[in-house]
């Protein structure tokens, strides 16, 4: 259970001994830890670059950025297999990067180019990579939650070992299909890991004004689905919860529900002027509980990385994003003559 509501002093990250004991218990190698760090840095750079590109007038449409939520994406990805299926929400960049998407193709799609994942038809909100079982982001809040029932059902009927990871936000949990899907996934004992990425706001609506009983994850009790609610800004805690959940699901024991409490730094989308939350609140999260800052402290404290190495990884991540922008900007626009393509298979 997460302990805080984002107010107050710097989050106590715990002692070196506690961290090392946890990492040992979870059998996380140094390489895995460094990988988590690299993933989070890459996501952070992608999101800030996206914002920068938008400010420079290079982005045609909207975007939903996940800066501040990187530990959720990284932690999930470390806990599941690369060939597991992913159904994602509209704030999806981080999850796709963590799943190993081609950053060049993502950036090209973001800029609406023909070389993008969707040949410029989808944009930020609909990136998908069917080669890697990434079934895409969804522009309809909660739209993917019931589709995960179908993916889980197919996996079960085909007697396969992959599972379906279905991620949605706190706002989506109030859509009717959430309840239909929880019921059916539990009823049919399907291999679906449901993850509610609670970043505290559904657009401007504070979760406490939108959900009658918190945590959201306790709703799983109504369907007999085991659940957990964890600090989504602690990447190792996220990993641990997801590992437990994914192992349960993969063992054929049915769905599992994990809620991660996190926070987004940017507004909901490009139109957001943050009128519903204070600058102090945003600063508090950035300064005191930033997921990358917290994890970096652990890595330095446990001498898994030194400051130079941490900086180097961060710089490398930034370079990946810069190169992706170069690739995307050099890519052709879709030819207008192809307008009518892809309507029917």
């Amino acid at each position: 259970m997460s302990d805080d509501n984002g107010k107050g002093a710097e989050k106590d990250i715990g002692s070196r001994e506690q961290f090392e004991e946890m990492v040992k218990r979870l059998e996380l190698s140094d390489n895995s830890l460094i990988g988590l760090y690299r993933t989070m840095c890459t996501i952070r750079h992608f999101e800030y670059m996206a914002d920068k590109l938008y400010a420079a007038g290079k982005v045609h449409g909207t975007m939903h950025l996940s800066a501040g939520q990187e530990a959720v994406a990284a932690g999930i990805s470390q806990a599941v297999r690369p060939d597991d299926y992913l159904i994602n929400h509209h704030r999806g960049h981080g999850h796709f990067i963590a799943k190993g998407a081609d950053i060049n193709m993502m950036m090209a799609e973001f800029l609406g180019k023909d070389t993008g994942y969707n040949h410029g038809r989808g944009g930020s909100m609909h990136i998908a990579d069917f080669q890697s079982n990434n079934l895409g982001a969804n522009g309809i809040v909660g739209g993917g939650i019931p589709q995960a029932v179908g993916v889980g059902l197919a996996l079960k009927m085909q007697k396969r070992k992959e599972i379906c990871i279905c991620i949605f936000g706190d706002g989506a949990a109030n859509e009717g299909v959430f309840h239909e899907a929880m019921n059916m996934a539990a009823l049919w004992n399907l291999p679906v890991l449901y993850i509610c990425e609670n970043n505290k706001y559904g657009m401007s609506m504070d979760v406490e004004h939108a959900v009658a009983k918190l945590p959201i994850a306790q709703r799983a009790d109504a369907y007999g689905i085991p659940w957990a609610c964890v600090d989504g800004n602690d990447v190792v805690e996220v990993y641990e919860a997801m590992k437990t959940a994914a192992d349960h699901v993969r063992a054929g024991k049915g769905p599992y529900f994990v809620e991660t409490i996190t926070y987004r730094y940017f507004g909901h989308s490009k139109s957001d002027r943050n009128l519903y939350r204070s600058k102090e609140e945003i600063e508090d999260w950035k300064r005191n509980r930033d997921p990358i800052m917290r994890f970096t402290k652990h890595l330095l404290q446990s001498e898994i990385l030194d400051e130079g190495q941490a900086q180097e990884i961060d710089t490398q991540a930034e370079q990946v994003i810069v190169k992706a922008v170069e690739y995307a900007e050099a890519s052709p626009e879709p030819d207008i003559s192809t307008l009518m393509e892809y309507v029917y298979a």
Binding site: P146, Q147, V149, G150, V151, L153, V177
Partner: peptide, 21 residues
Amino acid sequence: ETPISEATIVATAIGASLLGM
């Protein structure tokens, strides 16, 4: 047989079809 959940009936068909059913 499904519960009375039309949206999820159609969504289940979508999800399963994406995996080749």
